[in-house]
Amino acid sequence: MEARVEKLEDFATETRDRLVKIESRLEQTAANVSALQVEMHKGFAEIIKWMVGIAIALGATGITVITFVLNNATPKAPAQPPIVIYTSAQPPVAAPAPKP
Rank of each mutant, 00 (worst) to 15 (best):
S88N: 11
E9K: 08
W50Q: 13
A35M: 07
V84P: 08
P75E: 03
T64K: 04
D10E: 10
G43E: 09
L36N: 01
V33Y: 08
V69H: 03
K7S: 09
E2F: 06
S88A: 14
A97C: 00
G59W: 05
K7R: 12
A3S: 06
L70N: 14
F68R: 11
P82Y: 00
I22Y: 01
A55I: 02
I22A: 13
L58E: 04
N72C: 13
P82H: 02
K21R: 12
A35R: 14
V20R: 11
P78R: 03
E9W: 01
I85M: 05
P78S: 05
G59L: 04
T67I: 09
A55G: 02
K7I: 02
G53A: 04
L26Y: 02
L58T: 02
H41R: 13
F68T: 14
P98D: 03
L26T: 14
K21F: 04
P96H: 10
F11V: 08
V93Q: 13
P91S: 13
R4V: 10
P98K: 01
P91R: 14
T15I: 00
P91K: 15
L70R: 15
T13G: 00
R4M: 13
K49H: 07
R25G: 14
K49Q: 09
F44N: 12
A3L: 06
M40I: 14
A45P: 01
V5A: 10
A97D: 01
A3N: 06
E6I: 06
T61K: 05
K7T: 01
I63C: 02
I85D: 04
P96K: 06
P92M: 06
H41E: 15
A89S: 13
H41F: 08
R18T: 02
E2I: 06
V65D: 02
V52M: 07
P78C: 03
D10P: 00
T74G: 05
E2Y: 09
T61E: 05
I83T: 11
I48T: 11
L19M: 04
A12C: 00
L58Y: 00
V20L: 09
P81G: 09
A35T: 12
I66C: 07
V69A: 05
A31W: 02
